[in-house]
Nucleic acid binder design. Structure first.
Length: 303
DNA sequence: CGGGTTTGACCAGCGC
DNA sequence: GCGCTGGTCAAACCCG
């Protein structure tokens, strides 16, 4: 399966047809923040990143051109202006703490999830010969797999599975083509929650972890055990996504973030299931500024 | 014992 | 049409 040679880095992402990455196109007027440990900066797609990172991003841009999703794109018509986008994501976080709001990401992408809300998109395929147990498994043949909005994070971390405030159950792991690192599949342990996430280490930069969230949490996180970091991911993963998806790209958001708390300098023992013990009680619930307010220097926001 | 992980198998989708 | 790859399932296993 995995072929480690003749690797075309791009396949890493292009293989996923549902990906839509913000690229250097008019639409990306909105701001897409990427965080870099070294410079701890964020920038739009033009960024001031390390050469290799810029390279990586370029790949994304390219992807965007080749993997556009009309359905999502159209949906994105609202494409707020950049600054607004960022701020919106933040203020939108107001909805973040709002369950209904979070569950609404679907509505932000009617073409993608309107139907998925009721009938779970993926598990539907049900692995082959398994006896259909739930309706979702009896997906009609020919019926396309419905994907929910995805949000990807590129995180510099030594830990694969980053704590994000939710509890996840691993349901699969696969070797990925062109990558020496396996991809892990997680599902939210909340039975009513269909959110899934994939975690894989970048083949190009083993120090970075690519986390892709799919769907929206229909419940609150179990807590914010790791303060800042968690709030970041949790926010994006389950609470801010709605806002983000609305104001940015409904499809995929790529954030390059290097949560200080998980870098070597401040390694925190990741407790996947846990999400309790927190050295410093940092509620970190989205404020008016929401996630961005937490991780994006105000000065950087309005671009 | 309950919940999470591992792992092999299966199927759908997509590209050639 | 075929082969490859990603995504998911579920039995077996592990761990607290």
């Amino acid at each position: 399966m995995e072929n480690k040679e003749g690797a075309d880095p791009r396949n890493e992402f292009t293989s996923d047809s549902s990906w839509t990455l913000p690229g250097p196109d008019p639409v990306s007027d909105s701001v897409n923040y990427f965080f870099d440990r070294e410079s701890s900066i964020l920038s739009e797609f033009g960024w001031n990143l390390q050469p290799d990172q810029a390279e990586e991003i370029e790949r994304f841009g390219e992807l965007d051109r080749t993997e556009t999703r009309p359905d999502l794109a159209g949906n994105f018509s609202g494409s707020q202006s950049s600054g607004a986008g960022a701020a919106a994501a933040g203020s939108g976080s107001g909805t973040a703490s709002n369950p209904s709001g979070s569950a609404d990401v679907s509505t932000s992408n009617p073409s993608v999830s309107s139907s998925s809300s009721e009938d779970p998109p993926e598990k539907s395929t049900g692995s082959g010969g398994k006896p259909p147990e739930i309706p979702s498994k009896v997906r009609k043949k020919g019926q396309k797999r419905i994907r929910q909005p995805r949000f990807a994070f590129v995180t510099k971390s030594e830990v694969d599975h980053l704590e994000d405030g939710y509890r996840w159950r691993k349901y699969g792991q696969k070797a990925v083509k062109n990558s020496p690192f396996p991809r892990s599949y997680y599902r939210c342990t909340n039975s009513k929650c269909t959110v899934k996430k994939r975690v894989e280490r970048s083949s190009e930069d083993p120090t970075t972890v690519i986390t892709t969230y799919e769907g929206q949490h229909c419940h609150h996180s179990v807590g914010f055990p790791r303060g800042g970091l968690v709030s970041h991911e949790a926010a994006f993963a389950g609470q801010l996504t709605p806002a983000v998806s609305q104001f940015y790209y409904p499809g995929v958001q790529l954030h390059r973030e290097i949560p200080p708390s998980i870098t070597q300098s401040h390694q925190v023992p990741i407790d996947v299931g846990g999400s309790r013990a927190l050295p410093e009680p940092t509620p970190q619930l989205p404020t008016d500024e929401g996630l961005l307010g937490d991780i994006v220097p105000p000065g950087m926001r309005n671009r």
